[in-house]
Write a protein that binds this DNA or RNA. Structure first.
Length: 645
RNA sequence: GCCGACGUAGCUCAGUGGUAGAGCAACUGAUUCGUAAUCAGUAGGUCGUCAGUUCAAUCCUGACCGUCGGCACCA
């Protein structure tokens, strides 16, 4: 006698168990047509599911956000059927719904190529048009394994074997085609609709392990209707337009070339951007009580052996040798061992702690070739690195200070929001459990004090300690990990750092490894994409374009440009032989934030016509006024005299 | 590193077994013009590198390098 509560609070009573389909029909024909699945006491299930107890039921229709996941999951099944129909002998593995779409991993001797897409998509549309119902069945484990083994589906058989013993094994059949699946699904393949598209193929290791066979993965995207699909495709185009690699080239910021894979050639304009960010960071660190240092690039292997890098990190290190000397040097992949060397010079007192040692540390890491990505993932990069040597009691207050500094810096760069992930002890780690208890406890306490909410990333900590990771969200919703704070009890031990305490005895300091931007290369790449090249004035590599209308204004324009440069602004003087329309177009495409237009009138009146990027209005200003205003506006956000636009 | 795709002028891209084109950019000239493209002309390429097949290779084959999309990696 189930009593079913609906979202509007009404209750329907039935004499016998009832399916979602029947319940929907009982409520009304409109709902019966629209319902795709239902939430039974909060759990998403098939409409065919029997309701045999008192329950709350919410029907899912195409309008609900949950529909997306159902559509994508069903689309994955349709894809798999299409592929197996067209390419007999292909084995199926897994095919989940993912953000924006779905994929399915297949095993086939010959991998798929995008040229196969038209045929597969056509077959998928056939299957959707056929509208075969998804039929769920519960299968006994042995039968399920036998079913797939009979078909030569050894991956599926392996999956079933590895399912927990108490797991109910279910199949979903659509017409002639059956897959192992936990569900739920919509009513029929027709519910997938037509707003899907196959996107790309990729290799993917079976069960995500690189020792396993490589499968052929087909990615697709699927939406509730054509409009959503179009919007998604349009978003992808927009994302491509703000790709830092394209903008970096178009704005003449940097380039990469074959001879130096993973290393950036910064051009003058890009380097100006870099220096602006670096100067800003240096001022912030100075003000926050850090002392900046500089340590060697090439360091003897003995130090890396002592630090543990030689053992744990060697495959990522560039090794250098010379002919005349029998020694092995390595380009530093991290700065911490070098900072400990500075700490170890002389006898340190507890009075010096916390000692905040910062370096814009140029590091090299041999990243796998497949990991390289523009300037975001490189082999040579510069970290805004620092190590805070402190006592255990200082971990919490230092964390609080750090998070405040980080939040303020992210805000200044235009990222008001960030997320925090707490990565705790990994399986392979140095230090005993008591040390880890202390380190994690201290970091947790520090987060509480700082009011930092975090999600836990289990087992993802560094081998020497737990860490916080600070993740930025950019203008188009992508996440980027930048900042980090790592608590380290191990490195001071290994490299024998110590200080004399209040009690006159020697103690080990704790090291906090921390970075805010992460690496300049990566952070600047993120900034480029965040702003799509249209930087705020203080960051813009060219801040003002001075463009003449007629050559009679050239001399005055040179004077204006000189005055702006004297005020510290980056100026492009354009007295070229082109129309003002062409000049404005050129500088607008180059994302120069301010264009000063100078004709005879301005030259005579000693004024400028100021035009903002993307705007149509212009503002007439006296020369002195304009220079003062732009200089104030272009000041970095931490500087006094900064003025808003 | 693994799977796949790709590599032709600075950029975007055509193209062919008989050693290459377009648009934009660049350069030169004319034009001096008031807010997102003035006109005309000129120059520019070992067709990623190295082998192989062929009378002949940018094109076909192989290896390598690099890039792109994923996977794995991101200590």
């Amino acid at each position: 006698m189930p009593a079913i509560t609906l979202p509007d609070g009404s209750v329907r009573r039935f004499d016998a168990p009832v399916t979602g389909t029947a319940l929907a029909a009982a409520i009304g024909p409109g709902l019966a047509r629209a319902a795709l699945a239902m939430k039974l006491d909060g759990r998403l299930v098939d409409l065919a599911c029997q309701i045999d107890h008192d329950a709350r039921v919410v029907f899912i229709t195409r309008r609900d956000p949950e529909a997306l996941e159902l559509i994508r999951h069903d689309a994955a099944h349709v894809l798999a059927e299409a592929v197996q129909t067209l390419y007999p002998g292909t084995q199926v593995t897994i095919g989940p719904a993912i953000e924006n779409g779905f994929y399915y991993d297949f095993h086939r001797n010959e991998p798929f190529t995008p040229e196969d897409f038209p045929a597969i998509e056509a077959k998928m549309r056939e299957i959707v048009a056929r509208g075969a119902p998804f039929v769920r069945s519960v299968v006994e484990r042995g039968d399920a394994i036998a079913f797939f083994e009979r078909r030569g589906e050894r991956f599926k058989a392996e999956l079933i074997r590895d399912l927990p013993a108490d797991q109910t094994i279910t199949f979903y059949r659509q017409g002639e085609w059956t897959d192992l699946c936990r569900g739920p699904h919509m009513r029929t393949t027709a519910d997938v609709g037509s707003a899907f598209r196959l996107m790309k193929v990729a290799g993917a290791y079976w069960r995500g392990d690189h020792r396993n066979p490589m499968l052929s993965r087909i990615y697709g995207t699927a939406w509730r209707d054509q409009k959503e699909l179009d919007a998604y495709l349009h978003m992808l185009e927009e994302a491509e337009k703000r790709d830092h690699r394209r903008i970096g080239r178009d704005m003449d910021l940097f380039h990469l070339q074959e001879e130096a894979p993973g290393s950036v050639f910064w051009h003058a304009k890009g380097w100006r951007l870099y220096r602006t960010a670096e100067s800003y960071m240096r001022r912030r660190l100075d003000a926050a009580g850090y002392q900046e240092v500089r340590t060697p690039q090439l360091v003897d292997r003995s130090l890396w052996e002592a630090s543990g890098h030689w053992e744990k990190f060697r495959e990522h290190m560039f090794i250098a040798t010379v002919e005349d000397e029998d020694r092995v040097l390595a380009l530093k992949p991290m700065n911490c061992p070098c900072h400990v060397q500075i700490f170890r010079q002389g006898v340190r007192s507890y009075r010096e702690l916390p000692l905040r040692m910062a370096e814009f540390g140029a590091c090299h890491r041999y990243e796998p070739s497949g990991a390289l990505h523009g300037i975001m993932r490189v082999r040579a990069f510069t970290q805004d690195d620092a190590h805070i040597f402190c006592t255990e009691a200082q971990i919490a207050p230092e964390t609080v200070r750090f998070v405040e500094l980080l939040a303020s810096i992210y805000r200044d760069f235009g990222f008001p929001e960030f997320r925090v992930k707490f990565s705790d002890r990994p399986a392979l780690r140095a230090g005993d459990d008591a040390v880890w208890d202390r380190a994690e406890g201290a970091l947790r306490e520090a987060c509480a004090t700082a009011g930092v909410a975090y999600e836990v990333n289990p087992g993802e900590g560094a081998f020497y300690g737990p860490k916080l990771e600070f993740v930025l969200r950019d203008a188009i919703g992508r996440d980027w990990q930048c900042g980090t704070l790592q608590v380290d009890f191990v490195m001071p031990e290994r490299l024998d750092a110590e200080y004399v305490g209040e009690d006159g005895a020697r103690h080990r300091p704790v090291m906090l490894h921390r970075a805010i931007l992460g690496s300049f290369e990566r952070f600047l790449g993120i900034l480029i994409e965040q702003y799509a090249g249209r930087f705020p004035l203080w960051l813009a590599p060219v801040q003002v374009a001075v463009a003449t209308i007629v050559s009679d204004a050239d001399a005055y324009a040179a004077e204006v440009a000189a005055a702006l440069r004297a005020a510290g602004l980056a100026v492009a003087l354009d007295t070229g032989n082109a129309t003002i329309k062409a000049k404005i177009r050129e500088h607008s495409l180059a994302h120069v934030p301010v264009i000063l237009v100078l004709g005879r009138r301005e030259a005579e009146a000693r004024t400028v016509a100021l035009r903002r990027l993307g705007g149509e209005a212009q503002e007439m200003l006296g020369l002195g006024d304009a220079v003062a205003r732009l200089a104030a506006e272009a000041a970095a956000p931490d500087l006094p005299g900064r003025a808003a636009a």
